[in-house]
């Protein structure tokens, strides 16, 4: 049996971490896109759309991400469609993050004081004009910090994709541990890499929050 040096372990983990990053980016972009659509449905004021969005958000917030991954991975194959772990993970994480982002953004929009609406209405602006010129620009400022903050949850959420066999950072860690029998060292590295990915995001989120609030 060939011996793994520390560098071998770290190198393999870093290579696998590329997939963690890729999956995070896809999940964030996909989640943002779907979340944007859902947010607009939610603020449309149309009862059916609002309730559908509500149900969607409750469903994905009320079930574990792991179950969502299983359901997407095994569920789609029931229809005779072959899904790769990569596709299943990207899809499940997109659905998951879209639900949370929708909730975050709805909160930001609703936090704009009622007086802004009233002043706009008195000036004769219609719903779309109020949204576009008054509410959304202000909500966007407030939304940046919690959105960046939530991206940390997405990065950590990608670890669950290892269960359906997608080789990202955690899965690579498991495989390397099976080869080296040095769990503390291997998973120590794994944790360190996750931390190095997430910490800058947390710091950025905190800085943005301070900056946008101080000048708000």
């Amino acid at each position: 049996m060939s011996a793994f040096t520390d560098w071998d372990i770290l190198r393999n983990l870093l290579l696998a971490a590329r997939w963690t990053v890729a999956l995070s980016l896809i999940a964030f972009a996909g989640g943002a896109l779907v979340g944007l659509l859902l947010t607009f449905m939610q603020i449309s004021g149309r009862v059916v759309l609002v309730q559908m969005t509500r149900l969607y958000v409750e469903l994905f917030q009320g079930t574990p991400l792991l179950m969502q991954l299983f359901l997407v991975f095994f569920g789609i194959s029931l229809f005779g469609i072959d899904v790769s772990p990569w596709t299943a993970a990207a899809l499940a994480l997109t659905l998951f993050s879209s639900a949370y982002l929708t909730e975050i953004w709805r909160g930001c929009i609703e936090s704009i004081p009622k007086g802004q609406w009233e002043a706009s209405r008195c000036l004769g602006l219609n719903y779309v004009e109020v949204m576009y010129h008054i509410i959304l620009p202000q909500a966007l400022r407030i939304a940046i910090a919690p959105t960046v903050g939530f991206s940390v949850q997405i990065v950590k959420g990608t670890a669950l994709a290892s269960i359906i066999g997608f080789v990202e950072l955690t899965k690579a860690g498991t495989m390397l541990n099976n080869a080296t029998f040095e769990p503390f060292k291997v998973f120590g590295f794994v944790a360190l890499i996750y931390f190095l990915l997430c910490y800058p995001l947390s710091v950025a989120s905190r800085m943005l929050e301070r900056k946008l609030h101080a000048s708000g």
């Binding site: 007086g115 002043a119 209405r121 219609n126 202000q138 400022r141 708000g216």
Partner: peptide, 24 residues
């Protein structure tokens, strides 16, 4: 009614206790 409120806005102005200026 939305279109009526828009028409009214050309005849009736309102100033509020808390100004309600658009801060951005």
């Amino acid at each position: 009614d939305d279109s009526q409120i828009r028409k009214l806005s050309k005849s009736v102005g309102m100033v509020f206790q808390h100004f309600n200026l658009f801060p951005h």
